[in-house]
């Protein structure tokens, strides 16, 4: 499937800022499931540099802009040919050992309820890690309804499970937490999702989880949509949780509040421009 992505994010500042610094994890890797035909990240008036590839195989860039900054706009445009690999991640050059993805972060720290959920799923009896991983993803969705607006960004998995409602970020955090409790390395993945009319409600700027299955490697699970990522998905980057995987992690120096607006289209076929 050929997907064209046009994604603009705009940060507006109530008062001019002395300096803006943002770490950008916005570049998809070449994978068996996705061939990047073109990809461009631009920002008027800001410097984009300090490029490196991290141990998870993600290209990371740094955006800096000073002085008297009233707004920052980042535009991402790209064309990707996708292939369905049933969620199995193949072709990523990464070097972080899977064991490092068993650690907790504040967003994925276990609670009694998360432990109980992991234990419940584990008690079901599973034929290997892959079947366990599917069961964990299913249980996550059973316990957390898809409700837009029930949670803000950055709610810990424990709280999400108590609430029983959330969006893709929340589903991913709950799944990551119970996967780690079950001994499966797990991580947070960001990306884009092409929405077709028949699909369940979902966001075009999307997030899911990857679980490490011995013998198979990393496998994606999208609990929000009860499926594994297929050719509607473009994978951007990963991390221990939403904070570490964030496409844009930034900081501004100056007074006043910040508002963010964005426009995103993930469309079929070649770009119209």
């Amino acid at each position: 499937m050929r997907l064209t992505i046009d994604h603009t994010t705009r940060y507006l500042y109530e008062q001019p800022q002395r300096r803006i610094t943002q770490s950008l994890r916005l570049t998809p890797a070449q994978l068996k499931s996705q061939k990047i035909l073109s990809w461009d990240i631009s920002s008027d008036g800001a410097q984009i540099g300090a490029r490196f590839v991290d141990g998870a195989g993600d290209v990371v860039l740094l955006l800096t802009k000073g002085t008297n900054v009233e707004s920052v706009e980042i535009r991402v445009q790209g064309v990707v040919d996708t292939t369905d690999t049933a969620g199995v991640l193949t072709g990523l050059k990464e070097s972080i050992p899977p064991l490092a993805y068993l650690r907790d972060t504040p967003l994925t720290a276990p609670s009694e309820a998360l432990r109980a959920l992991a234990a419940d799923v584990g008690a079901g009896g599973h034929d290997g890690a892959l079947s366990l991983a599917h069961a964990l993803a299913g249980a996550t969705r059973d316990r957390v309804d898809y409700v837009i607006g029930a949670t803000e960004a950055g709610v810990p998995a424990a709280q999400v499970l108590d609430l029983g409602q959330g969006v893709c970020q929340d589903h991913a955090h709950v799944l990551i937490s119970i996967a780690r409790l079950s001994g499966l390395p797990a991580r947070y993945v960001t990306g884009y999702l092409h929405s077709d009319a028949s699909g369940e409600a979902h966001e075009a700027s999307h997030a899911w989880a990857e679980l490490f299955v011995e013998g198979l490697g990393w496998v994606g699970f999208d609990p929000a949509n009860r499926c594994c990522p297929d050719d509607r998905y473009v994978r951007i980057g990963s991390g221990l949780d939403a904070l570490h995987a964030a496409p844009v992690r930034g900081m501004s120096f100056g007074a006043g509040s910040e508002t963010m607006e964005y426009s995103l289209t993930v469309s079929l076929g070649q770009s119209q421009q």
Partner: peptide, 11 residues
């Protein structure tokens, strides 16, 4: 902010 990016890119 950004120090680790500069470090990791060799600056």
């Amino acid at each position: 902010p950004g120090l680790m990016n500069v470090y990791r890119s060799g600056g």
